[in-house]
Amino acid sequence: MNAIVELDEPTALELAAQMVESGTAPVDILEQCRNGMSIVGEKFESGDFFLSEMIMAAEIFNQVMDLIRPQLRKTTSESKGKIVFGTVEGDVHDIGKNIIIALLEAEGFEVIDLGVDVPPAMIVEAIKEHEPDIVGMSSLLTVAIESTKKTVDAIVEAGLREKVKIIIGGGRIDAYAAEYIKPDASSDNAAHGVRLCLEFMGGDKV
């Protein structure tokens, strides 16, 4: 879908609506969106796109998803993996989280979004309930370095550390923070984060 890559919101939404109306299978529409988002992700990683373009692309993607979701539920598509995702305790910023979730969904992951300001206990509970392959934690604030560490520690204490891969990311998450928190992977770039998740799943796009 060129309209997504060109960030042409009116055209993208109009085309999606036309396709729905003309009976195009929702999985086919989804496939086109995924291709578009995949190019968007690549452009972001190569430095052609910046955050504002990512936010616009995610906004278009989410609107198209809202359009096709009712139909999409009826069909089952194979998931590339299950991810529990949230912004950590003490932080309510969700721009970063929402960008990577849009990219992950476009890539074919099943994402359980726990929202923002998520306490460690809630993430531990979500791991027990959903048995995800990956746990993703996002943040913006400096204080989140400590909350992310607390959450990883809580996962260790609950005896669940070996059951999941942990990826962390966000504004103040860098190599020093990762060394301190000890996740399986970290990134402050959403598109790179998606590639790391694919690697966890033994994916081909490395």
């Binding site: 400096t142 370095i145 103040r172 020093y176 923070a177 301190y180 928190i181």
Partner: peptide, 13 residues
């Protein structure tokens, strides 16, 4: 230095 170095680092780092 980034915040993370103050929090998780050491004087040597």
């Amino acid at each position: 230095p980034p915040s993370s170095l103050f929090i998780g680092g050491t004087p040597a780092k």
